[in-house]
Design a protein around this nucleic acid. Sequence first.
DNA 1: TGAATAGTGTCTTTGAGACAGTATCGA
DNA 2: TCGATACTGTCTCAAAGACACTATTCA
Lengths: 290, 290
Amino acid sequence: MDTPQEEREFLDAYDPREFDPIAVTVDVVVLTLREGRLHVLAVRRGGPPYAGEWALPGGFVRAGRESLDEAAARELAEETGLEAASLDRVHLEQLGSYGRPDRDPRMHVVSVAYVAFAPGLPDARPGGDAAGARWLPLEAIAAAEQPATAVGRPFERGRRPGTYGGGTGRRPLSADAPEGFAFDHDAILADALERARAKIEYTPLATAFLPETFTISELRAVYETVWGAPLHAGNFHRKVLSVPGFVESTGETDSRPGSKGGPRARLYRAGDARLLHPALLRPDREAGVR
Amino acid sequence: MDTPQEEREFLDAYDPREFDPIAVTVDVVVLTLREGRLHVLAVRRGGPPYAGEWALPGGFVRAGRESLDEAAARELAEETGLEAASLDRVHLEQLGSYGRPDRDPRMHVVSVAYVAFAPGLPDARPGGDAAGARWLPLEAIAAAEQPATAVGRPFERGRRPGTYGGGTGRRPLSADAPEGFAFDHDAILADALERARAKIEYTPLATAFLPETFTISELRAVYETVWGAPLHAGNFHRKVLSVPGFVESTGETDSRPGSKGGPRARLYRAGDARLLHPALLRPDREAGVR
DNA sequence: TGAATAGTGTCTTTGAGACAGTATCGA
DNA sequence: TCGATACTGTCTCAAAGACACTATTCA
């Protein structure tokens, strides 16, 4: 049925003018916990535009040779310098795409953003071409600053001073990047943080920030850090153990941490649940939720 | 800091070989309710590939001239033939991007998919270039078929017989498209349905499927249709009214529906909440949730 | 009059959170 | 011995769901 629409579409596919000028990249927001703080992997830009500024690691999708997921995994491996063996404990998921025509001054670039939740990774890891890669600590999340994002999130946001939660505040996402990130990477990072906060509510992915075995207290520290709010230790403990498939006991106890006293905590590993039911909801979402 | 990585990135942006062969499109999954069933807007393909098969409406992003959101809104307007005035009641959000190199046999095409929730729209609406557009009824969702998708959803899925929920079943998504949709549009549609099912849990977006004013029963019918499960009328009624900001009363009552008896239902409109708290959770998620 | 629906009342169960209490460790 | 932590017990309150009931309309 040679409708005009389909004819046009077919021709467009071979008309260089239509699609030539759009480049496709993947950018990866790699989040990890180090010393009780959230960190993001950042690279310092060597050339223009935004020379000298921090940016998210990323690169062009290899046309005809890899999928978006594969491109993201490749970038993640290159920038972290990790072997595939270590990477399979990293959770990687697509976040969203950003395609405002002016987001890169050189040309129209559509970036498919990914988020990764990683356990503590080696410090300097300039593997591959990521000579300038570093872990930037993110500012502590003020509990009151929780955004109403990720609901109507759908809409792309432009470049603006990056602050936690995508709000209108002025505090930079990282003190090490006071000017914010290059391109619209502040907005991508803010969306990634909101994704992380939401995702650990109803999935067991908080365990992706931890080594293979962990204590309930360490798991609680993940939640407290990502949510930026203290949790009740006793209630959290019981809650985690009551959700089917969240964690399973290893039968062992912690063999001496750098602790400040107290009994040896039991060790757990991630269970087989992919969804938490019932979920662990963030405290007091009522306020500021509309 | 002229790192090799940044130099390469800079050069790549001007090296046609790297990005030339990738085209960027938007595809829109427009969902609506007609006569108590979910429908999706589909266009019949006129030319190869997949000539004669149904596909999602979509088209190329106009390089340098529009953002992804704008492209999706433009496609939505073109294919539905609606004015901007009618479109502002339609909810449009980004779903995700699909970029397997073989998803289009012609070349590497990255598609940014969007989902739209629309109230009942005029029947035939071949506006613009969408001569072959039609509303296809989707099969009723078996309650037991609820997937564990959208959690580890991140990963792109390939072309396969499209079934509700993205499971491994064999029932086509629509009896009107027994062969499934063209390209990987079955997978996109399945992801869109799961997004819709999840989104009405914690947002008031079920109202986007209804006219400006509606009764609680009509709202319940949206949930029952999208979730594919019957809900308890009385409990649903009380629940909706108890969630702050979900709906607000118009003070009026329904002026005669094609009803089967019973008192005149009160009319409501959407409230100002953007998140439902507490949420309306789908019944019995325990089963099959892992 | 009967059937279907709108809307409300009530009871049970589950789960979240506040709080207290005991046991175990390091310093 | 002190302080911090791990873990458990108990109570209260909110909310979900089951069920029953009344009132209102159409056929």
